[in-house]
Design a protein around this nucleic acid. Sequence first.
DNA 1: GTGAAAGCGCTAACAT
DNA 2: ATGTTAGCGCTTTCAC
Lengths: 341, 341
Amino acid sequence: MRRGIAIATIRDVAKLAGISVSTVSRFLNKSGYVNAETEQSIKNAIEKLNYAPNQVARGLAGKKTNTIALILPDISNLFFSDLARAVEDVAATYGYTVIFGNSDDQGTKEKRYIETLKQKYIDGIIFASNTFGHEDAEMLTKLGIPFVCLDRGPDEQNFSVVRSKNREGAVMAVQHLRDVGCRKIAHIYGPQHLVTGKERLIGFEQSVQGFDWYTPTLLEPADFRIAGGMKATERLMERHPDIDGIFAGNDLMAVGALKALHRMGIRVGEQVAVCGFDGIQTTEITAPELTTIAQPIYDMGALISRLLIKKIEGNLEEDRLYELDVKLIARESTLRRKNGI
Amino acid sequence: MRRGIAIATIRDVAKLAGISVSTVSRFLNKSGYVNAETEQSIKNAIEKLNYAPNQVARGLAGKKTNTIALILPDISNLFFSDLARAVEDVAATYGYTVIFGNSDDQGTKEKRYIETLKQKYIDGIIFASNTFGHEDAEMLTKLGIPFVCLDRGPDEQNFSVVRSKNREGAVMAVQHLRDVGCRKIAHIYGPQHLVTGKERLIGFEQSVQGFDWYTPTLLEPADFRIAGGMKATERLMERHPDIDGIFAGNDLMAVGALKALHRMGIRVGEQVAVCGFDGIQTTEITAPELTTIAQPIYDMGALISRLLIKKIEGNLEEDRLYELDVKLIARESTLRRKNGI
DNA sequence: GTGAAAGCGCTAACAT
DNA sequence: ATGTTAGCGCTTTCAC
């Protein structure tokens, strides 16, 4: 016996109320009729015994644990911790508990989590992890475990996807950079196996294709991280010292660009404008503050959480793609001239 | 039946191996003897059926779920997401799953989590939440739920606490500021109901008490957040325009100080040196980069997680206070002169 | 409207 | 060394 004090069971309640266990259960779950008087006596008994249903037993009997899981690359990543916050907020509202797992974008870790979660009768899973693939989707479908994903392609089926308008966002970024007077804009793009990396690059190319100043060497790949953004910036500025605008595929790389430019003695905002993408909290604390195309991170987390729960409870009409609007947040890093935004 | 495909049970394994359920269970838990041949046939059966024990059933029978919970103020807070990462890493290593909950430092939310966790037979809880108090400790003890805490006073009993050397860190901060030539140092202190806020203030006062330039008006309270740090800085600089060093009680407030000084046109590092406390990732991306007294955040998370698991498994010798070393990370924000560090 | 009883999948005596 | 059996606490037919 691990527990210190004895905990009341449904049987205790039934006994005290002078009725059977099944009636108490019916009352608890609001399934089937219960007489008004009986109900009152049950309530009294519950109160007196300080009774609360054992969720584990419920889980065994009903295969429902009121627990969902959130698999993400890394909870300490600024974007994902914001997302996690939203997911948990909504889950708590609906009476769900949330488990999280860091996949580090390693397929094996992710699969290990899935295995564990299956054995724990987790009700559903949110994948914000990049390694999630078709086979995983198939397996989960076969197991009958509901799931939803973040940032997948629009071609997915059998499951819902939440992401934001990456392509449009990239177009907005370029437009903004041009509005503040940039005439030679480079793009540091993220990993191409990620929708976010790919779509933002497409949006960029689409926006700059027509200009005579544009050349593919204004593109530089990086890894969505600060250090990568720094290196990419160095390479870009070396190739084209006259670059006056940089659109980074995400905020972390934009922060890297800020740092690199700073080290080169280039004044961000005045000489070179920098625009990021994501809208993580950190963009507010850089100097200069970072202009960014903000995703509604909290809303995305809240939506995906709500979708999963609806799906679990059988209230989701259909699986589909939800593309949320992004928003330009113009700050100091793109304040090129007085007549700029 | 929610699950799509049928999942093998221990009974299936027993049947296929031609033995009884209890033998399989014994094998699974390595409790009691099992014949070599029998063992082999069990292994075969398990493999063939792709069997994995149902953790919920195990939980019901054994009151052990291999799940721990992490209650923190806010997962989207930079410090706590780093901590959460460490906690989960270690937990996963030991075969534990982790649930997290955001308390927002509201006692009611925290109590609600405790209630839920109890009903789910969670094995133990890590409290990084500030609202955790004596009554909670008592309740958990009575319930027999193991727990450990972050950043509590040294006077706690019945449970282990992990924190870092806050007072020493504050002394180090002042020493460093003096080393780089500061002659009038202010302190933005955090909430005094938190050990971190209190201890750092004590360390500061202890360090500056002897100096003739010191006066209590060099102290300014704030809330451990960026905006609070900004306001405090403004007030301080107004009162004492000749302040040349600021020690903020945590990094977020230090970031606020950076921003405020920047707005006032004061060059951080040269005119006024700023030192934070915590060592969150963000300190690397401010401009200038922020000098800070770094707590070993990952280590703290790893340690507290390990402690809890040991306690759960009955391997923790005694409950005690673990005070980890902090480390000065000198960066641009305190680079006052060439002969500075 | 209410109760009896089987069963969820596993563990842990206890017996052999 | 292995099998039998009684729970763990709840849900859910199926009778009454």
